[in-house]
Design a protein around this nucleic acid. Structure first.
Length: 359
DNA sequence: AACGCGTGGAA
DNA sequence: TTTCCAAGCGT
């Protein structure tokens, strides 16, 4: 006998039941029966923006240990926060994190606002994070939409229109499923489903609690969703970094401008990053000192969001006179402490390359 | 409304 | 090796 065709719609309770069975133990999840600390929820959500759980874990633990409350974080020098964030990427998040802590600590008496509307006004908190904090920390019914939710909705309802144009459609569908109760658990459940079951590639539909109502699966197109507009390829740029070591074993670093790429982070001084390779003569002219530079063999490669970078490293041992001539804003860093200098990853690669060649 | 903004892991 | 991409936000 043939089953009657039902207009089955995804059941949020089925997802919640799945989440209760498969809830991952993550450091920012409150223990069952305990409420979440809004500060901890906020911190984790900022770190998790475009960043994997694996990458976030050690940073989250370190931040909470060093700065257990929003007041502690607000009091910290912003340079300390940037250093602690080094390696995690998207450094504007760290600047806004510190700014936001200041607003909450002094403007809100250390209490995070408990509505999306008010959370949304804080620096670094956009539509996603406002909804996530409202739902997870304050148990408000909020429609939480991230990349996972978009993917799950696109597949559940077989939305073939490409992102980002389909964003509003996907958000509206997510809204229809968001339950009145346990909206925070539901949000985390859908995101966990997207992260562990409804994955971008090779989704594990067999174990999905919504498999029987998934239109994408019925049509055999689940894995191809959501469709996305094509990406442009990343151009290649070239730069030269100048590794200048003083007689006392300190290397010259400097602080990048507060905004833009790697804004506010420490760097090895270097040339512009441009499309053409630098000749040794050009590099010497662009260097902070007239000196007998030694070009190290090899280059380091790094990929940013929108371009690839190839950096050569030129080095000298500075005389005392040369060291004095350098700009006053140089941050002299002992080679032994370079690993804790808070270098962004691309600069850590430069340092590693230089140290490997010299020692 | 696009685009700029990091990084490391998976396939 | 290359490509994709992860719990987005600010401008």
């Amino acid at each position: 006998m043939k089953k009657s065709r039902k207009l089955a719609s995804p059941d949020p309770q089925a997802l919640l039941a799945w989440y209760d069975r498969h809830r991952r133990r993550l450091p920012w999840r409150a223990l069952p029966g305990r409420t979440s600390d809004p500060y901890a929820v906020w911190l984790s959500e900022i770190m998790l923006q475009q960043t994997t759980v694996t990458a976030v874990k050690p940073y989250y633990e370190n931040f909470l240990t060093r700065w257990p409350t929003v007041e502690d974080l607000a009091k910290a020098p912003v340079a300390d926060v940037m250093t602690a964030w080094a390696g995690l990427g998207y450094y504007a998040r760290a600047r806004n994190l510190h700014k936001c802590a200041g607003v909450v600590a002094s403007g809100h008496a250390g209490m995070f606002p408990d509505t999306e509307e008010h959370l949304r006004k804080l620096p670094g908190i956009g539509p996603y994070t406002a909804a996530a904090v409202a739902a997870i920390a304050f148990d408000k019914k909020a429609v939480v939409v991230d990349g996972n939710v978009e993917r799950v909705m696109a597949r559940l309802f077989a939305i073939t229109a490409p992102l980002p144009g389909s964003k509003e459609t996907l958000r509206a569908l997510a809204a229809t499923l968001t339950p009145e109760q346990r909206a925070g658990d539901y949000a985390q459940g859908v995101m966990d489903l997207g992260a562990t079951v409804c994955t971008p590639k090779s989704p594990a539909c067999v174990i999905c609690p919504w498999a029987d109502v998934c239109e994408g699966r019925k049509l055999g197109i689940a894995e191809t969703l959501p469709r996305k507009a094509k990406k442009v390829e990343t151009p290649l740029r070239h730069g030269v970094a100048f590794w200048m070591v003083r007689a006392d074993g300190c290397v010259a670093l400097r602080r990048r401008p507060p905004k833009g790429l790697l804004g506010g982070m420490t760097e090895v001084p270097g040339t512009d990053w441009r499309a053409e390779k630098w000749t040794d003569v050009e590099a010497a002219e662009a260097a902070p000192l007239r000196a007998k530079w030694r070009a190290l063999p090899g280059v380091i490669n790094h990929t940013f969001t929108h371009f690839r970078l190839e950096v050569a490293v030129h080095t000298i041992d500075l005389t005392a006179a040369q060291a004095r001539k350098l700009e006053p804003e140089i941050i002299w860093t002992p080679l032994a402490r370079i690993g804790r200098a808070g270098l962004p990853s691309v600069m850590a690669k430069v340092a590693r390359h230089a140290l490997a060649a010299i020692t």
